[in-house]
Amino acid sequence: MSKWQWDTFFDAFPMVVQGLGITISLTFACYLCALIVGFVWTFIRRMKFKPLRWILLWIMEFIRSTPPLVQLFFLYFGLPMVPVIGVALDPFTCAILGLGVHYSTYIGEVYRSGIDSVDKGQWEASQALNFSTGKKWTKIILPQAIPPTIPMLGNYLIIMFKEVPLASTVGVVGILQLANNYGAQHFRYLEPLTIVAILFLVLSYPSAILIKKLEVKMNRRFDKKAVLKESKGAVS
């Protein structure tokens, strides 16, 4: 068997690329799920009732420190067998739930760091101005907490993009699955797998650079604001 065959490469390429749509849409679906569930974790962290908070935080730690692959298997193979709440999920939903919830624990931490970074004076000021809780969050805290976390959130999008091939193990036909299928049919794994690697690199590397640029821009903007505030303080 010769080592590298260009015709196999070109033969496999269109087939593997077909899966790209599914891989990308799955990434965004998981990401959306993680963004939403992440809010839930942040909310839990701020809960007043201690025992419940404690239990839920341990659950979060549990989800965080166990492999997403096993969680996927649990959802896909295990859940339908659970007596009462057992529902059979199709692979796509299963992947969204599994990966989404797994990464939501990370996203929740990002939110938390954003909220923690809001200056204490802002909390006090909104209280002094007699804002309601809802208004305090929507008008004062969140507008300041979210922008600094955007680069971090973007990083997680890229990380999730790279984790999505895990879903091929429960039967989502993304690029990795197609490459493996091709490999099994023609008994040539080298070219299709290389294509997959190249596709990932081509998609994730530019976006990583973009996010880095965004980060620099954000940093500059927030620094400028801080500098401005200081200089104003000095003048008055």
């Binding site: 068997m1 490999g183 080298l190 797998l193 690199l201 994730s204 590397y205």
Partner: peptide, 25 residues
């Protein structure tokens, strides 16, 4: 660093396991 950070672990794993033996024998 960029290659390994840019692709996903599962792809690298399969590549090392299935593709590398084919490439270099």
């Amino acid at each position: 660093v960029e290659v390994f950070r840019g692709t996903s672990l599962i792809v690298q794993l399969f590549w090392l396991y299935y593709a590398l033996p084919m490439l270099f024998g």
